[in-house]
């Protein structure tokens, strides 16, 4: 009985974590979409460290930049929706990790790198991107949507057929 209670609580915590991260992703995407003229150019052109040539190239090529902008906006929105509703949760979480990893690689908080976009905290190697990535990893390895999410229905439909 006691085990069952603690399991319930664990599930509950996972579901809350899933929804919160989903909310964050969804709003990041929607806010950019609503801004209309939003572009990743500023963020990308700041890129430091070894991958910066790649990101600089994205900025310099208009077609690529547009693609990056659209993919980023819709990626954020879809991942957010997926996490909140618990639809293809693992795929969404993995995609979210990949996306954040790209942000991290673009502007890693390493010693000796300085950015003109200010940060609201103080970071060394680990920043909130890394923490959110780790949280998404938790969502992948634990059943965060098996019971409380669309995945619950999908699993059943899949099994039935």
């Amino acid at each position: 009985m006691q085990i069952k209670e603690s399991q319930k609580l664990q599930t509950c915590a996972l579901v809350i974590l899933r929804i919160l991260i989903g909310w964050h992703f969804l709003y990041e995407g929607v806010a950019k979409l609503l801004k209309g003229n939003w572009s990743a150019a500023g963020f990308l052109s700041q890129s430091k460290w070894i991958l910066s040539p790649v990101f600089q190239w994205m900025v310099s090529n208009e077609t690529v930049l547009n693609l990056v902008n659209q993919m980023n906006i819709w990626g954020l929105i879809l991942i957010g929706l997926g996490l909140i509703t618990g639809t293809f949760t693992r795929i969404a979480a993995a995609a979210g990790m990949a996306l954040i990893f790209l942000y991290y690689l673009c502007n890693p908080p390493l010693a000796g790198l300085f950015y003109s976009i200010p940060s609201e905290g103080n970071y060394l190697i680990v920043n909130k991107n890394v923490v959110e990535m780790a949280a998404l990893f938790v969502l992948i390895v634990f059943p965060a949507a098996r019971n409380w999410g669309i995945d619950h229905i999908l699993v059943r439909m899949f099994r039935r057929s």
Partner: peptide
């Protein structure tokens, strides 16, 4: 619009 930010959390208010 001139200098966009990808991750809103990373900027101060």
């Amino acid at each position: 619009a001139t200098s966009a930010v990808l991750d809103v959390r990373e900027t101060i208010a």
